[in-house]
Simulated scan of single mutants.
Amino acid sequence: MNIDLNSDLGESFGAWRMGDDAAMLAVVSSANVACGFHAGDPAGILQTLRSAAAQGVCIGAHVSYPDLVGFGRRNMDMASADLQASVIYQIGALQGLATAAGTRVRYVKPHGALYNFIAHDARQAADVIAAVKAVDPSLGLVVLAGSALAGWAREAGLRTIEEAFADRGYRADGSLVPRNQPGAVLHDPEAVAARMLQLARDGTVTAVDGSVVRVAADSICVHGDSPGAVTMAQRVRERLTADGITIRSFMDAA
């Protein structure tokens, strides 16, 4: 039995430090690397890619709405031509940096508001799918587990990777608790590790209302910008491996 463990990295910007990429890369099997539209500067992104290559960590393009000020967490009503070009641009930029770092981009994971919006919005979802296919149809697409996007992407011929979140609260319908509501972000490493073992073993998580929600996931995300993120990711990995579950990139498990 195996599952992927991923984190959002490359998000530091100039003097503003976000997360501990070097430490997190020693724990995860896949890294969603910022492309400069919600966070990340070229030099910092390149360093993260070099570190990931040295650790043998799989690389994904963490594409976003163009929203540096809002960290990509604000919805944007972009025209299709603009959104498609934006996603193509970001993937291409990361591909160039990855080549220089001796690695390559193998999948795409939308970030923040874009990730959540295209989980249910058919038009913007189609734009992101079209952009990924235009660059490289062999790229995987990471999607919220159980979302409409998972079906749309598969119908379009993309490989989909369904994802669960270690450090985010779930609602009874399987969606994430909005960040401005109580229970949205979880901080206790032991509690998070226990619920991810439940996810890996039973395919379920306990929602904020106490109900049990079925979540069939190929990958688990620990946000790199969360307080104590490295400790949380380490505890999740330890708990899973102690139970006989192998941590391996979803791209290697194909």
Results as ranks from 00 to 15, higher is better:
residue 83 L to Y: 09
residue 27 V to D: 14
residue 230 V to P: 09
residue 136 D to E: 06
residue 191 A to N: 10
residue 160 T to F: 09
residue 215 V to L: 13
residue 132 V to T: 13
residue 240 L to M: 02
residue 86 S to C: 13
residue 229 A to N: 10
residue 18 M to L: 09
residue 13 F to S: 07
residue 204 T to Q: 14
residue 53 A to D: 00
residue 142 V to I: 15
residue 60 G to R: 08
residue 1 M to R: 05
residue 161 I to H: 03
residue 111 H to M: 11
residue 29 S to L: 07
residue 83 L to H: 07
residue 98 A to N: 10
residue 141 L to S: 09
residue 71 F to E: 03
residue 186 L to P: 00
residue 243 D to R: 02
residue 177 V to Y: 11
residue 3 I to A: 03
residue 69 V to S: 05
residue 143 V to L: 10
residue 152 W to P: 04
residue 31 A to R: 06
residue 157 G to M: 11
residue 205 V to Y: 05
residue 186 L to E: 01
residue 54 A to M: 03
residue 156 A to C: 03
residue 133 K to E: 00
residue 59 I to P: 02
residue 250 F to G: 12
residue 66 P to K: 08
residue 158 L to Q: 09
residue 129 I to L: 14
residue 173 D to Q: 10
residue 30 S to L: 11
residue 216 A to M: 08
residue 115 Y to L: 04
residue 188 D to R: 14
residue 20 D to F: 10
residue 106 R to M: 10
residue 28 V to M: 06
residue 254 A to H: 06
residue 203 G to C: 06
residue 209 D to A: 08
residue 70 G to I: 04
residue 104 R to G: 13
residue 87 V to S: 02
residue 237 R to K: 12
residue 121 D to Q: 01
residue 188 D to N: 15
residue 84 Q to C: 06
residue 88 I to P: 01
residue 244 G to R: 08
residue 123 R to M: 11
residue 85 A to E: 12
residue 31 A to C: 05
residue 24 M to K: 06
residue 244 G to H: 08
residue 103 T to A: 07
residue 114 L to M: 05
residue 85 A to Q: 14
residue 218 D to P: 08
